[in-house]
């Protein structure tokens, strides 16, 4: 049991280096996406052939691509895309997965078996391969890539939630709630969910990073966001064939993806320390 008082929550935030660095990196990402909604330094869509393959300069901060589009602007607009895909995909996984996990823990018996065996089944397929399969069946595009990534997230959340929820169901305060006449539904929402929430939030942050990576991978393969909307993965793909002609083009989308994933992973780690000091004491 933690002996901390609530005021030390801020202290824990301040002391956790991963939380601070991850938070700043993620914040920067969100800021880029927000700014790009109404302003970008150049245009992410306008094709200006004479300006193609420009190196970084005052006018084009990170240079231009083979069509003369401004890379900073494309990256910033691409952030919107990455975040939108990740938010929706994680939400799909979170809502359905957490509900299934809570249901499995509350019902036990064959309901639990059924939900868990299905999630085992889906785990048997490599995530990115099944996402490719889904987009191949449904056709490439932003919405379908969201669906594909979201589907993969469901069993991850279901499994995690069920495991943590089972541990909470075994606690005495749940028995006390039963003795008070509370049904399983109320107990799930009043006792189980609040006690597993911090673990779910941490997992959501990490899956958010994985979703950004998966979206980039699908776009790289041409199965995700379609042109002309900028997307980090497709920028990488297009830069690949030009890597000896114009290396700048490949470096920046790669850096953007790396920054996003690294930042979110750090944030997830930091949140683990901040939200529930019992979970990790090593750092």
């Amino acid at each position: 049991m933690s002996n901390s008082d609530p005021t030390s929550f801020l202290n824990r935030c301040r002391r956790s280096r991963s939380f601070l660095i991850g938070g700043v990196m993620t914040g920067f990402l969100l800021l880029c996406a927000a700014i790009s909604l109404f302003w970008t330094p150049g245009s992410a869509y306008d094709i200006v052939i004479p300006d193609r393959f420009l190196p970084p300069s005052a006018e084009h901060w990170l240079g231009t691509d083979q069509f003369g589009r401004d890379i900073v602007s494309m990256l910033m607009t691409g952030t919107q895309n990455s975040i939108a895909v990740a938010v929706v995909a994680v939400s799909i996984g979170l809502i359905i997965g957490v509900s299934l996990g809570l249901l499995a823990a509350a019902k036990r018996g064959w309901t639990e078996e059924f939900i868990m065996r299905i999630s085992d089944f889906s785990f048997a397929f490599p995530a990115i391969l099944s996402a490719i399969m889904i987009t191949a069946i449904l056709g490439p595009g932003g919405v379908n890539s969201i669906l594909a990534i979201g589907l993969y997230n469901i069993p991850v959340f279901a499994r995690l939630t069920r495991g943590s929820a089972n541990a909470i169901w075994a606690r005495e305060f749940v028995l006390a709630a039963r003795a008070a006449g509370k049904g399983k539904f109320r107990i799930t929402f009043e006792h189980i969910l609040p006690n597993v929430l911090s673990i779910i939030i941490v997992q959501a942050t990490i899956l958010f990073a994985i979703a950004i990576l998966a979206e980039a991978a699908l776009s790289y393969l041409g199965l995700g966001t379609q042109p002309p909307h900028p997307s980090w993965g497709r920028m990488l793909n297009e830069a690949q064939s030009l890597i000896f002609l114009d290396p700048w083009q490949a470096v920046f989308p790669g850096l953007a993806i790396a920054t996003a994933v690294f930042g979110l992973n750090l944030l997830g780690d930091g949140l683990r320390d901040v939200l529930d000091p019992r979970l990790s004491r090593k750092r």
């Binding site: 305060f173 028995l175 006390a176 006792h191 006690n195």
Partner: peptide, 15 residues
């Protein structure tokens, strides 16, 4: 009504 053994486990820390 019931009183449980472990006063650390029988009270929900979030309430």
């Amino acid at each position: 009504q019931m009183v449980f053994q472990d006063p650390y486990g029988s009270l929900d820390p979030h309430l």
